[in-house]
Design a protein around this nucleic acid. Structure first.
Lengths: 226, 226
DNA sequence: ACCTGAACACCGTTCAAGT
DNA sequence: ACCTGAACACCGTTCAAGT
């Protein structure tokens, strides 16, 4: 009876690009990449699917905007750190963003020259420059770092997708355990090496492993170009 | 009038998993990832879409089988080469396979523990072992290499997708040139580094750049673990 | 200017019916 | 056993019609 103002408060909030992107991120986080649908999004925003198109040209742009919104909140600089530390922090930022929003892993790999990745490229580049890498090698060095990050990103996104689809109620440790057991059961002739490192898969830490890869590339960069 | 045998020869070739996968690869290569449709595939095989499901469980399996078929023809070993050379050859094999079949870039990133990638992992692993990397670091070293390869793979696939969609009739050199020009036009304050390496983007060689990244990681591995 | 929702042109997948 | 093709349950996107 007294709900008139209350209800309109919710209803009258006008549709905007910002609200749409926000709702899209929520849908992607909770329902996965397959869960983002113009119909589901419209229902979430209490409108019809056509309304969204007035604020956004299509699904591709919507995914791009969602990725930018997430990645944009991420490029903070730690003052007074070594270039190596800055690169580690930057890379970890991407890693963590993907952990909370696995779908940006797919999205980053999909938009090559587009802005979210270009920003990461720029920041990595400045640190590589600070490392003293000669100009002619800077592009190569940054590309190596970025491609590695993107590879991990894509892998994590795929893992999240598979995890959500197949065993949504198991933890990461449990998942690694089953994978490691499967590796240990492989044909000894064809997969001798993989069998041998199955134990390392079982008790590894994703973040640490990711950072170890970054360090490996950094070592290569400094050994070669410094 | 004398075409009876001729015609039947074509028509009677029975549907098989092999023929379906082959047709799917053809469709993916010529029409891109979006071009692979059960209806298009059925038309290509002169049958109905339902027939395909008798030989293949669904689209995911079909894409997986197509990827395996392409990657499977690729793991040749060069006898009497150093581990470094073997790794380079192996990585270049993946790179070249992606260049002729860009869609496997997406596909490799999508199937983490699945067989095509596991084979590459195994072969890389053997060479890393031959390099003398201690057991506890082998998983990390191979992961770094593989993630880098997958990052480039995804990037190349995305580029091919964008290229086919936007400027299908321009060459790679032309594409790099426009990209480099766009970089050189970026805001000097926000993108100082990227602007500075625009020239390196313009006249770089994809294969060489890819190998330079591999070498950087190899340098890191040997510097740290040998 | 902005929203609505039916309609269009597609998908992947299923399934009764055929051979 | 294997194939056919209509039908189902979805998509993204458009567009006349409303406010």
């Amino acid at each position: 009876m007294a709900t008139r103002t209350r209800r309109t408060e919710r209803r009258e909030e006008p549709l905007s690009r910002e609200r749409i992107v926000e709702a899209a991120i929520g849908l992607l986080d909770t329902a996965g990449e397959r869960g983002l649908t113009f119909r589901a999004l419209a229902e979430h925003l209490a409108t019809g699917p056509g309304a969204i198109y007035w604020h956004v040209t299509g699904k591709e742009e919507l995914l791009g905007a969602a990725t930018e919104a997430v990645v944009g909140t991420m490029t903070a600089g730690t003052a007074g750190a070594t270039p190596q530390e800055e690169i580690r922090t930057l890379a970890l930022g991407v890693f963590d963003a993907i952990e909370t929003h696995p779908w940006i892993g797919t999205q980053l790999a999909r938009a090559p020259g587009k802005s979210p990745m270009l920003r990461v490229f720029e920041h990595l580049g400045r640190q590589v420059q600070a490392l003293g890498v000669p100009h002619t090698a800077q592009f190569t060095a940054v590309s190596a770092l970025l491609n590695y990050v993107l590879g991990v990103a894509g892998q994590n996104a795929a893992n999240a997708r598979a995890h959500q689809a197949h065993q949504p109620d198991t933890g990461r440790a449990e998942f690694l355990d089953t994978a490691a057991t499967a590796w240990a059961d492989l044909d000894p002739a064809e997969y001798a090496f993989t069998r041998g490192v199955a134990d390392q898969l079982r008790d590894h830490d994703d973040r640490e492993e990711f950072l170890a890869g970054i360090d490996l590339i950094l070592t290569g960069i400094t050994a070669r170009y410094q």
